[in-house]
Design a protein around this nucleic acid. Structure first.
Lengths: 119, 119
DNA sequence: CGGCATCCCGTCCGATACTG
DNA sequence: CAGTATCGGACGGGATGCCG
């Protein structure tokens, strides 16, 4: 029974949450960014606290490298590791799907919200 | 600056969390399953409460259809909608990546756990 | 069989303020 | 500039038990 092994859970562990996928995606296209540069590059207003935390997770997972120049004022750069670059394959697909279905998702979510409000 | 629009956030809204992607993936390969059948098909021991909740989200998002035969005892079947089937594109890629990197992810996580214990 | 009710905990996400 | 401290709310996930 079953027999269908999946790697989906593994992948979700890596990109799940509101930000990690987005951060990875941005870094993949720039190959090295400073903290606030990255912060500004992300559309949805991410706070520095959240960005710091999510970046740390990505570093812990070996997807992103953190380079601290140890200067004053501080200068830290982030870039995707070779391992992290392998995520580009599915991130590209996720991005394409999201772009194609942006409209539909929005309206469906509005409907769901309306139903929830009625309760 | 920026200019890079992303659909990644949209996609993450749909499959994020520990289970939704997995449920969708299972349903995509069976095209109609009953509640407990689906429950048993999922490896990681999902509770009925969680499965019910996650399925409801997928139904609300229009990715899964719920067919209630209104019989006693109850018989409910779930199947992926045409819209839901469009997720197969990126889910396949996510699955492939996860399968390829299962080992690495495991060891990296163990290391992270060790570091956390030391604190 | 296919759920829902209750309780609980840990994580996620966020605003604000502050620091070396 | 690159974060950390603090506080708090929302959500995800799980154990247990009950119901039509």
């Amino acid at each position: 029974m079953d027999g269908q092994k999946t790697g989906i859970d593994i992948t979700l562990e890596v990109v799940c949450g509101k930000w990690k996928g987005l951060i990875l995606w941005k870094l993949l296209h720039e190959n090295h960014m400073r903290f606030n540069e990255l912060r500004r590059a992300i559309d949805g207003n991410i706070s520095s606290r959240i960005l710091a935390r999510e970046l740390k997770k990505l570093v812990d997972d070996g997807l992103v490298a953190r380079i601290d120049y140890e200067t004053v004022p501080p200068r830290v750069e982030y870039q995707v590791t070779p391992y992290g670059k392998t995520t580009a394959s599915f991130l590209t697909n996720m991005n394409n799907w999201g772009m194609e279905h942006k409209r539909q998702s929005a309206t469906k979510r509005e409907m769901a919200d309306l139903i929830n409000r009625e309760k």
